[in-house]
Structure formats: C-alpha cells, structure tokens
Amino acid sequence: MKEKLKAFSFLAPALLIYIIIIVFPGIYSVVLSFFEWNGVSEKRFVGLANYVKLFTNDVIFRIALKNNIIWIVLTVCITVVLALILALVLNEKFTGRIVYRSIFYFPYMLSWIVIGIIWKWMYNPNFGMINTFLGAVGLDSLKGSYLSNPKIALYCIFAAALWQGLGQPMLYFLAGLQTMSSDVLEAARIDGAGKINLFIRIIVPMLKETFVIVLATQIIASMKVYDIIYVMTDSGPANATQTLATYMYNQTFSYNNLGMGSTVATIMVIIMMFIIVPYVIFSTKED
C-alpha cells in the first residue's frame, strides 16, 4: 500500500496538470461545438447544426481544409524526403559535419514569427531578395508580389516553412541512423550491395521506427500550422491561405463565434485521430 502511494506521488502532479489543461478543456470544447454562443449572451443548443453548416454551406472552411491537405502532401513529399537525404549525407564521417548539421538545424530554433518576418521581407516586391535575384539574372517577367497572389501565396509560405522545418526531421533521421549498427552496413557492403540497394533493403527497413515518428509528427504539425500564416498573410489574400487553425481562430476571436470555433477545433482533432491512433498503437505495441 505504501509502495502504491509512493508510486502515485510520482505520477500525480503530471496527471493532475494534464487533466486540467488538456483533458478537461478538450471535452468542454467538444460540448461547445453543439452550441451557438458569442461568449457573452446565453448559450443556445443547436445540435449538429454547426457541423452541417461547415460541411454544406461554408466556402472558407472548404478552402481551409484543402489547404491543410496540400500542406500535408508538400510536407511528406518535400520536407521529409529532403530531410532524409540531408541526414544520409551528414551521417558520413567527414570534418566539419557538426558545423553543417548546425547550419541546417539552425532555422528550427527560430520562432515562426521570426521566420515569417524574415520571409515576408524576402518576398517584398520592392526590395526583397527573391525579386532582386530575379532581376539580377534577367528574369524580370517573373518578378511580382508573391504573397498577394492568391494562386501561389500558400506555396510561398510553405517555402519559408521548409526552411524552418527541415532541421527537425533531419535530426530524427540522424538519431535513427546512429542507433543503426555499423556492422550490418559493413557486412552488406562486403557482400557487394550497391548504394541504392543498401538504402532500400537495409537502411529504410531499419529506420522504420524513425519514419513512423517523423511522419506522425510532421503530419500532425501540418494540421496545426498557424503562426507563420498569421504573420505572413494573415490568411489572405481573400482567404486563400486560410487553414483550419487560422479559421478556428478567426471564428472565435474575430467573429466571436465560439461555438463555430469549437466545431472547427473538434473537426481538427477528429481528422488527427486518424494519424494519432495508428501511431500510438505502433509505438507502444512492442511491450
């Protein structure tokens, strides 16, 4: 009994805070999604009306959902692939690799706000680096104010996110590569396995755990993308860069539509559960 109490005393602070900050608000938010509420007057129960409205009669919600999907695809196809290539290169033993690692990791330490500020200047039509460069190499026809073009604004923000976000998955892959025994690689090399063969048959399967954690964290982060859009375009022009997170914020704090905001948040969680549940099952099943 005394042992149990002792064990509980180690667990209690974390569990208590976790329940107050995460679990309880999460449940409350789901409850709010069934109400219409402006935060001041009486709440009005509306059942599933908020959900129905979002899916049948809300163009902006559809844009936001589409943008999140685009963001996930870009992250998986570009960020994760480049991070893996970089990690393979920087896992080789050569002088100065720590310096190179730090260079690619460095932007990850900056806040999205700083990234947003820097890249907004890069895209500035009058003095930004991108347009200056295009002018210098004679491609004046490509010059323009990228962030105010609804067709490409989202992709321009993604470029900034790539600059920031490459370091994190790279570090995960590096850590995964380091846990790999060099004997296996050596043995494969002696057996005459070519580089590509070695990669597909040995490295990728051995990095399975790392792939799962990288893909799960990257997809979840893509679902949550908010800060950088807030700074760079504030979900404009004309809602072209709206995401679920920005739309949730706008509904709640700009239009005082707390019920609708909670509905968007709940939908985000439901979508994310499709990634979270398999991931959690995978990462705990080996016990």
Partner: peptide
C-alpha cells in the same frame, strides 16, 4: 502503465486551439 502512457501521449497531438476557449 501502458494505458496511462497512451492517455498522456495523445495530448502531444491535440491542437492548442482545442483548449483556447475553455482555458
């Protein structure tokens, strides 16, 4: 202990937005 771990792990993935209004 595994169940408790899973319970805690899920929180890592929930969006901050979920808790904004209640907090």
């Amino acid at each position: 202990s595994n169940g408790i771990f899973i319970f805690i792990l899920v929180g890592m993935m929930l969006p901050v937005q979920m808790a904004l209004i209640p907090l």
